[in-house]
Amino acid sequence: MGEKFPFRARNPDNTRQLILDAARIEFAKAGLSGARVDKIAETSGVNKRMIYHYFGGKELLFAAVVEAAYMDIRSQEQALGLDGLAPSEAMRLLLDFTWKYHLQNPAFITLVNSENLHQARHIEGNRQLRKLQKAYVGMVEGILQRGVASGEFRQGIDAVQLCISIAAVSFYYLNNRYTGRVLFGFDFMNKNALLARRQFNTQTIMRMVAARPD
């Protein structure tokens, strides 16, 4: 038996969220082409007619799920309160958050992979996501500027490239955990391996941004 959500009193917001939660599971498991609206209806406890009423179809539902996935990580990053921390502390906290988020939300990785297979067509015109991404880059840029001013970070770091690197050091490792286990010969998800990777990620990025000695 698959995961099934408990009954909740029906109202538009609850119903929409039930559908999104069930769809996230189904799309993460089967991708857009393999996902079944019947399964989403069964898991959510919402009939197919209501799913089409709220989202208009499987493609639009997938777009909503991907949007929600990005909005979740971006909103949690903004809630970290990094602007009030010392630059190095803020950067370490962001690195730690990113690693833990990717580790604890494997559906995010599979959904991003799926959207990349579709060449990002479901989010291409999404202004809200671009606005959130711009805010995220601005937050990282602010940390960098404060770090340069305090002497902790070097000048000339591209905030966009740094954002990509912060995501990449955890995303790639977790995304390739199965092929990596075979090719490198160790269990990527072993407790000690995860701890070593977390430490490596932090050391790598912190050395990348650190001020160079005169």
Rank of each mutant, 00 (worst) to 15 (best):
L195T: 12
I51F: 06
L111D: 07
A68N: 09
R154T: 02
A167Y: 13
I164P: 02
A68Q: 14
L82H: 07
R146W: 02
G34T: 07
G56E: 09
A64M: 07
F186L: 05
W99V: 04
T98F: 06
R177P: 00
Q119F: 10
L61R: 00
K134D: 15
N175S: 15
L20M: 06
R49H: 05
A193R: 06
G81Q: 10
F7L: 11
V66D: 05
G31P: 08
R24T: 14
K29P: 00
V148C: 11
I157V: 15
V209P: 07
A69G: 14
N192T: 13
G125V: 00
R207T: 11
Y172C: 11
G57C: 01
M208A: 08
R146P: 01
K58D: 01
N113S: 11
G56Y: 09
A30I: 00
R146E: 08
F62K: 01
E67S: 12
M189D: 09
R181C: 09
T204C: 05
R92F: 03
I205Y: 01
L20P: 03
F62E: 00
A63R: 05
M50W: 01
T15Q: 13
L82W: 07
S88N: 07
D13H: 00
R207G: 07
F27R: 03
S44G: 07
N192I: 02
C163W: 02
A90N: 12
A35T: 03
I143E: 04
N126L: 04
F5H: 09
L18D: 12
Y172S: 10
H102D: 05
V112C: 09
K58I: 04
Q104E: 15
R197H: 15
L93R: 15
R130M: 11
G147N: 06
K39E: 01
R181F: 01
R177Q: 13
Y136K: 14
D158N: 15
M206V: 05
P6R: 07
M50T: 12
L194N: 07
N176L: 11
G142L: 03
A23R: 04
H53K: 09
N190K: 13
Q199A: 14
D21F: 11
A107L: 11
V182I: 15
L174S: 10
Y54D: 04
S114Q: 14
E124Q: 12
K191N: 09
T202M: 01
L103P: 03
Y70V: 02
N14Q: 10
R130W: 13
R8K: 14
E3K: 14
I157D: 06
M1N: 04
E77M: 14
I51N: 07
